[in-house]
């Protein structure tokens, strides 16, 4: 599937365990540059773990990971995490205002985000300007997710990892975020790896989809594969029998 594209991230026989649990088994595959790849599978399949391997929050026990054709261990962790940004599932906020959170990536480098830029990011993710001074405690679930995405974007990542960012949202916010992600992909050419348990979303938004189950990638291909899967396990998962 990825032959005609350069891989942004490539996995080669990757294994990862924690304690006695073999969480990821022999993962091999590529996430093509500039594409949106959706990652689906029942909870506990190892999706979050796979995402954290992409930005070096975790390292594999065996196997290799390449980011933009470089072995991941040859990239400084700080540089890697700015290059491969991640929006965590729980959208954790540091205490303070929306501005404090948008400023966080730069504060970590001893810099400061100009207010004008912060406003532009809010606009980019479809939030009103007056939210900039709002305490994050007073944000709705959807607003939090958007701030979390904008905060990740402040680092201008080339690869964006999204972990179930829409699972707690109502229909309207969900649609807004979907549009936003597609917009980011088109506008900045960002490669997006998106975990979702919403199969409709995985098909509509994704260029490609990986289906994971019990630590293995059981199917990959163009996202339409979910419409009429050939693989029996995938078929059962899509029908809702295994998740």
């Amino acid at each position: 599937m990825s032959i005609q594209y350069k891989p942004a991230v490539h996995f080669n026989h990757v294994n990862y365990s924690a304690g006695d649990t073999h969480i990821l088994k022999e993962i091999t595959g590529s996430f093509p540059e500039g594409k949106i790849i959706t990652l689906v599978g029942p909870s506990g399949a190892g999706k979050t773990t796979l995402l954290k391997l992409c930005n070096g929050l975790l390292s594999p026990d065996t196997g290799e990971i390449y980011v933009k054709d470089k072995p991941i261990d040859n990239i400084e962790p700080v540089e890697l995490r700015r290059l491969v940004g991640m929006a965590l599932q729980s959208a954790p906020m540091i205490s303070g205002t929306v501005y404090d959170n948008l400023n966080l990536p730069l504060e970590l480098q001893g810099k400061k985000l100009p207010e004008q830029d912060a406003l532009a990011w809010l606009h980019d993710v479809g939030l009103e300007e007056q939210l900039i001074s709002r305490n994050v405690k007073d944000l709705s679930g959807g607003q939090r997710q958007k701030v979390s995405i904008a905060r990740t974007l402040v680092n201008k990542p080339e690869v964006l990892l999204l972990d179930e960012i829409t699972s707690s949202l109502d229909r309207t916010s969900l649609k807004e975020i979907e549009e936003l992600i597609v917009k980011i992909n088109r506008k900045y050419g960002t490669t997006i790896i998106w975990i979702t348990h919403n199969l409709q979303q995985a098909m509509e938004i994704g260029d490609y989809t990986w289906v994971m189950m019990a630590g293995e990638v059981i199917e990959t291909g163009e996202s339409e594969l979910l419409v009429n899967p050939a693989n029996d396990k995938v078929k059962r998962f899509v029908r809702g029998e295994a998740g």
Binding site: V78, R81, L88, L108, R151
Partner: peptide
């Protein structure tokens, strides 16, 4: 732990 992961994932030390 989520705060720690957040800052690491944004390129913090």
């Amino acid at each position: 732990q989520d705060q720690t992961e957040l800052i690491l994932s944004l390129g913090g030390t």
